[in-house]
Design a binder for these strands. Structure first.
Lengths: 223, 223
DNA sequence: CACTAATATAAGGTTGGCCCAAAAACCGGG
DNA sequence: CCCGGTTTTTGGGCCAACCTTATATTAGTG
């Protein structure tokens, strides 16, 4: 229903492809389509167009993967996005869970000159307010997911990825922000919620949400 | 050639209509089309669409004028534009003549929350770097155009409007920025350039460019 | 090895933004 | 008051991004 320009649309496809590439490669087109809220047919069309431009490679019935050029473009979009998040959160004082959506709109309207000037203005920040690195998605080496934290283990919340307004809002309500120290007390049976002990109280979180929360493990066992 | 989303396109039409409304009302569609770099046919179509949405009124063979709703929308776009210009110039340190174009892209991707937060962050500035007021285009009452300054008269440069990258670049080279004190020495014959005495030296400027430079008259005659 | 679920393609539609060329309406000067 | 030039409108098309509804193809599994 909403029509985006090629520029914008292409950037969204590449950004999303880059996000999903971390999980499984090559990424099935259906996953792309789902994330973008678009039919599989539309996604296939766009993938072909992007392939013709040498931005991604499509192996039929396998999925897609970004070419070097496509990855670079995606990285640039992500960088702009995160720089805007920093600005909106740190300087404008907008809520932690809202800056993602605002940045999603600004990222496509940002020229290189503005990007560089913004980066300098912010003092070349290393990460966005949700903990994601601004240059490359190298990430910490020993990073794990909260959903894989063993019972009794203690960890520090490093980053939330991939982000979405709803998820961030949920985490903000639970005070689960980057830097928060977390110990997993137990996991309720039948895929129930995880019971977390944090420095600001006990919190319950579903497995699915926890799969978006990246942590650095401190100890596997209770002290 | 380039395709903009409805949102963006509509905002550009309204913004431009608002700019041109100052000169002659109702504004001929051809003027709109020319300014937007679009054929008269395309402009007519868009005007119809905007009319259906109650944003502007079209009197056939007369021209268009903004409705209250349309004027309000246009004012909002202009406000966002000028706030971004302030930010880009004052905070990011981008060149005076470049911020217009960057702001043109950002203005359509800016949500109300961001607009208000940005306004507060900038300390509710009264005018953009080119001197145009941010709230409403009330303007100073006794404002005139540089092109109408009588020979021997002295004035202060108040604002540049309407803006365009080329024009701003030209003025920046001449050091003709808001606040600059100008005395018109003479006008070369045959529609020749105006010879200006400024506090930073003598400058020559064409009549057409001067028609975009708004001034506040200090004295009609030399002291 | 055949079958099913995932994936791809084909066909046909919609909408929005743009274009050109040609017809129609208007306006001002003779 | 009519004629010519400008403006607007109409008709006819193009393209990109989306959609749905089939129909093929294929990969992995029983």
């Amino acid at each position: 229903m909403k029509h985006e320009s090629f520029h914008e649309s292409a950037e969204m496809y590449l950004k999303t492809a880059s996000e999903l590439a971390g999980e499984n490669t090559p990424t099935p087109i259906a996953a792309l389509a789902g994330r973008l809220g678009v039919s599989a047919v539309s996604a296939t069309e766009m993938v072909h167009r992007l392939q013709e431009q040498g931005l991604l490679a499509h192996q039929p019935y396998r999925g897609i993967s970004l070419t070097a050029a496509g990855q670079q473009l995606a990285d640039e979009v992500v960088r702009r996005h995160r720089l805007w998040e920093c600005f909106l959160y740190e300087r404008l004082g907008l809520p932690w869970h809202e800056v993602h959506d605002h940045a999603c709109r600004l990222e496509h309207a940002t020229t290189p000159a503005v990007t560089e000037a913004l980066d300098a203005f912010l003092g070349h920040p290393a990460a966005c307010p949700h903990g994601n690195p601004i240059d490359g998605q190298a990430g910490e080496p020993a990073e794990r997911l909260l959903s894989e934290l063993p019972v009794g283990g203690t960890a520090v919340l490093v980053r939330v990825h991939p982000e979405s307004e709803g998820l961030l809002c949920y985490l903000a309500e639970l005070d689960l922000l980057p830097g928060r120290r977390i110990t997993l007390r137990e996991i309720a049976p039948y895929q129930g919620p995880m019971v977390l002990q944090t420095d600001v109280g006990v919190r319950y979180i579903g497995r699915e949400a926890a799969a978006h929360v990246h942590i650095r493990l401190l100890t596997e066992e209770p002290a």
